[in-house]
Amino acid sequence: MSEPLLATLLAAEHAAVYGYGVVGARLEEVSRAAARAAVVSHRSRRDQLVALLRSLGVVPGPALPAYDVDARTPAQALALAARLEDGLSVRWRDLVVGTDDRSLRELGVAGLQETAVRAAQWRLLAGDLQVTLALPGVA
């Protein structure tokens, strides 16, 4: 029952890993370490979702060759990174709301927290006035 949610999440994590490639290429050196850390985290969530789907007998969807993300300046890269995280927050929250399974909910809450924290970090680096959201994951 939660398989479609997990599949959607996996697709979103694939997109995030790709998106951070674009982000990292445009960021200034000072912020690049944060982007590298973010990619590591997203890859690990991606691999976790792949394993989870397999354990449920579902063939995990592959990453697409390319995604429609663009950033030409460091400022755009920071904004894109925040957007990627905000988008993922929605998916992780969907998982929380879409299951009664305690371990899946736990995963969803952890994913939601991580993405909310990273989105705030990107907005802080971008110099935004409003760094945090009142309700992360609420589209």
């Binding site: 927050s89 929250r93 929380v96 909910r105 969803g108 809450v109 939601l112 927290q113 993405t115 909310a116 924290v117 989105a119 705030a120 760094v131 945090t132 959201l133 009142a134 309700l135 992360p136 994951g137 609420v138």
Partner: peptide, 10 residues
């Protein structure tokens, strides 16, 4: 979960 994430980010 959203409250938790918001406060984790504060």
């Amino acid at each position: 979960a959203s409250l938790s994430a918001s406060e984790a980010s504060h």
